[in-house]
């Protein structure tokens, strides 16, 4: 049996900016697969290529047996997509939006009504179906979009940052729905996110940065391979900070005062303490996490991405410029 998705040597550039460089991976059937990376890493570009909105410059993508480039219409009928930005018609009601989708995907009448009803119940919006979409909150809109992506026979579900901009409660709910859906039907889910805590529950995680894949594995394996114990240190004096930086070449500074030192384990920590112990104001030990995996692979923390104007513009360009908004 073919994997649900096969990506082979896909590359994409916008002008001189390389958005994706030689990206290859497989997604197995029924897997919950996460694309993890900071903003502008190329996740959305990759997802747009997978769901046929964008054409790659090189490489091939297969969904099931179908080549996304040569058989896009057939490929689309087995794919559900939830885009990063809302794509509902807010002048139509919730029901009308879902019905539109069903019609456009050729879902026959009875089945369509049954699925709309069941999915609205699943995302807990059954009593909202006659409301205009513009009256819904952003969390509710996202739930409508998830329901919409599953009205036709989608075997693969793409979610582009499904929880971004939502409050903690809504975020939790969305993951709950995804879990419930996966238990109800054969569904492969590919999700992009830059929230590290969300990928802990995924089957496999693909870490992507600056258009390149850095690692693909289960969260546990990633932690075992790349995860490191981290020491977060706040020294008392500037001089100590300099000394630490000099002693450990891979140490990095955060927020001016905090230094992150990659620890080799408990013995390393002990040695560190005996040398600097008295000159340190605060120290915390962080056990291996995906956060530290990301740091180890990219040399920076995923949350350091309060990107400058230039980086934001680049990220925007990689997502396809103004008209994909």
């Amino acid at each position: 049996m073919n994997p649900a998705i096969q990506v082979n040597h896909v590359g994409k550039r916008y002008g001189r900016t390389v958005a994706l460089h030689d990206v290859s991976f497989d997604v197995h059937r029924k897997e919950l697969f996460a694309l993890l990376g900071p903003n502008g890493a190329g996740k959305t570009t990759l997802l747009h290529i997978l769901c046929t909105v964008l054409q790659p410059d090189e490489g091939t993508v297969h969904i099931g047996d179908l080549n996304v480039m040569s058989q896009p219409t057939q490929a689309r009928s087995g794919v559900g997509v939830v885009f990063q930005d809302p794509s509902l018609d807010d002048r139509l009601t919730v029901y009308e939006n879902l019905n539109f989708h069903g019609l456009v995907f050729g879902v026959p009448g009875k089945l369509r009504r049954r699925r709309i009803e069941a999915l609205l119940k699943l995302v807990e919006l059954a009593e909202w179906q006659e409301k205009l979409v513009r009256t819904l909150s952003s969390g509710m809109k996202r739930r409508v979009e998830i329901a919409r992506a599953l009205i036709h026979d989608s075997r693969v579900l793409f979610l582009d940052e499904p929880t971004v901009g939502l409050d903690a409660q809504s975020r939790e709910r969305i993951w709950e729905y995804i879990g419930r859906l996966r238990s109800q039907r054969e569904l492969t889910v590919v999700v992009t996110t830059h929230y590290i805590e969300e990928v802990e529950t995924c089957d496999r995680v693909c870490i992507i940065d600056r258009g390149r894949i850095l690692a693909i594995d289960t969260p546990a394996a990633l932690k075992a391979a790349h995860g490191q114990q981290l020491l977060r240190v706040v020294p008392r004096e500037e001089a100590t900070a300099c000394e630490i930086m000099a002693a450990y070449a891979d140490a990095t500074v955060r927020r001016n005062t905090e230094i992150i030192v990659r620890s080799g384990g408990d013995e390393f920590a002990e040695a560190f303490l005996s040398r600097f112990g008295r000159r340190i104001r605060r120290l915390s030990v962080e056990e291996p996490s995906l956060e530290s995996v990301f740091l180890a692979l990219t040399g920076r923390e995923i949350r350091d991405q309060a990107a400058g104007a230039r980086e934001r513009t680049l990220a925007f360009g990689r997502q396809g410029g103004e008209h994909t908004r």
């Binding site: 057939q74 997509v81 885009f83 794509s87 509902l88 989708h101 456009v104």
Partner: peptide, 13 residues
Amino acid sequence: QFGFLREILVSPL
């Protein structure tokens, strides 16, 4: 502008 075009463009039509 409001993204609905993408919803239509990923349909098999």
